[in-house]
Design a protein around this nucleic acid. Structure first.
Lengths: 238, 238
DNA sequence: CGAGGTCTTGAAGACGATCAACAAACGTGG
DNA sequence: CCACGTTTGTTGATCGTCTTCAAGACCTCG
């Protein structure tokens, strides 16, 4: 089951023709190992990459070697749909753990914009949701304490993974190391470690290996000031 | 001269029909005073707002009263084009200084997506550039020292204002108070004040009233690690 | 079984926040 | 045009969060 379709149908009804169109333009699956660079900064891809399984991250590197991850993508997400119109990648994309991916050529996307206005709007929508997530991360980084910021990330992933059926109650898998979490939150790995311990100690979460369980959804969301509104999960005509 | 058209033509050629279409769907100008809420969080606008003159900011408020500004918009920018597809505003928009604005109804935008695929792609593009800016801000907030972060903001505004003809050499007007700059950068106003002084003292900028002059573009960009690539200024077929 | 990655802990220090007070600039109305 | 109140900018002092450095434990996988 194509998780892109699951994700889009959560936001609006798709016609059979639209689903068929999506299925025909998506390439066969490809497996990549953890750490693979899916796209590099400065490249001009001729196709966009869709995550079918696993996690991927967009990142930038600074002169001192520091890295900032600006997005985490899960099953059903395009990691670089924007390269269709932006052309030059202004960041890299890396597989955070082993992934299955598929691709869609930019030529095919251009055809979609000519022949399927409604489907075009839904693809546009998915990039708008990416941007909404960026903004929420900015709020968390700028004005929330680090524990709330981490709590927020977990709340967000919990919901986003739930949409594509990758949660089991309040449990989900997250293959990121604490160092990678640091690169997401803009924190040092030492500090991430201490915050994780704090969230565990206060009974909000448990986190063993790559398995995370949210033990107290209400309290975690309260700490994070999490309101899923920004994920725009309503099913409406768009 | 419609600054939206100036901005889009910087990225791709517009046909006469497309320019005419844009001109017909844009409402007459409206002046608003500084501090006006252009859109409120939670609203469902039936039209999107275009800045013609002045500055506007998107923002979110936290329980403790803290505010984070996640985007600054200048002439030619839509402040909430995304509400066309997202429907519910996940943030507010405020006039940062007096503004002239115009609006475009969502019905008109939907017609554009049916009748003008290329123009649709350019409107989509403009939201993708917003997202690229969000990501660059995330990198700055997460992994750059506050002086570099402020330097980067000034470099970015310098370029973006230049695109719509609002710079005079390396000089431009910025009507934001230091407190508002703090809400952009995620810093306290006291600290912003000290960083501004540092940039002035080291001869990188001058800043008197709302007039900013970049005194040493090279050094300021070096400090900021500014690379305008993420603004996607190339004129190409999209 | 070894090696590299990951997690954990402690100690010291830096960066930026907060608190507090005052100066300067601005706008508004008398 | 001046008086006044409000917003904005400036400075000092103290405090806390998060970083850096360092070292050891644990684990996982080839």
């Amino acid at each position: 089951m194509n998780p892109l379709i699951v994700k889009l149908e959560r936001r609006d009804r798709l016609s059979e023709e639209e689903k068929a169109a999506l299925d025909t333009i998506v390439s066969p699956l490809k497996r990549v190992r953890s750490g693979t660079d899916l796209v590099r900064e400065g490249e001009r891809p001729r196709e966009s990459i869709l995550v079918i399984e696993g996690f991927a991250g967009r990142y930038n590197t600074l002169h001192d070697g520091g890295r900032q991850i600006s997005a985490i993508h899960v099953a059903g997400d395009f990691v670089d749909l924007h390269s269709f119109l932006l052309h030059v990648m202004d960041h890299g994309v890396i597989a955070l753990g082993p992934c299955s991916i598929a691709t869609v050529s930019h030529d095919a996307l251009r055809s979609v914009t000519r022949e399927f206005p409604h489907l075009t709007r839904l693809l546009w929508l998915s990039t708008l949701i990416d941007a909404a997530i960026h903004r929420r991360w900015l709020v968390a980084m700028g004005r929330q304490p680090s524990a709330a910021q981490l709590a927020h990330l977990l709340c967000e992933l919990h919901v986003r993974l739930g949409v594509v059926g990758l949660t089991d109650q309040d449990t989900f898998e997250l293959p990121l190391s604490q160092s990678e979490i640091g690169d997401v939150l803009g924190l040092s790995l030492v500090h991430v470690n201490r915050i994780v311990q704090e969230l565990k100690r206060t009974g909000l979460i448990s986190w063993v290996g790559r398995k995370i369980a949210i033990r107290n959804v209400g309290k975690l969301r309260e700490l994070a000031e999490f309101n899923p509104m920004y994920l725009h999960l309503e099913t409406e005509s768009r």
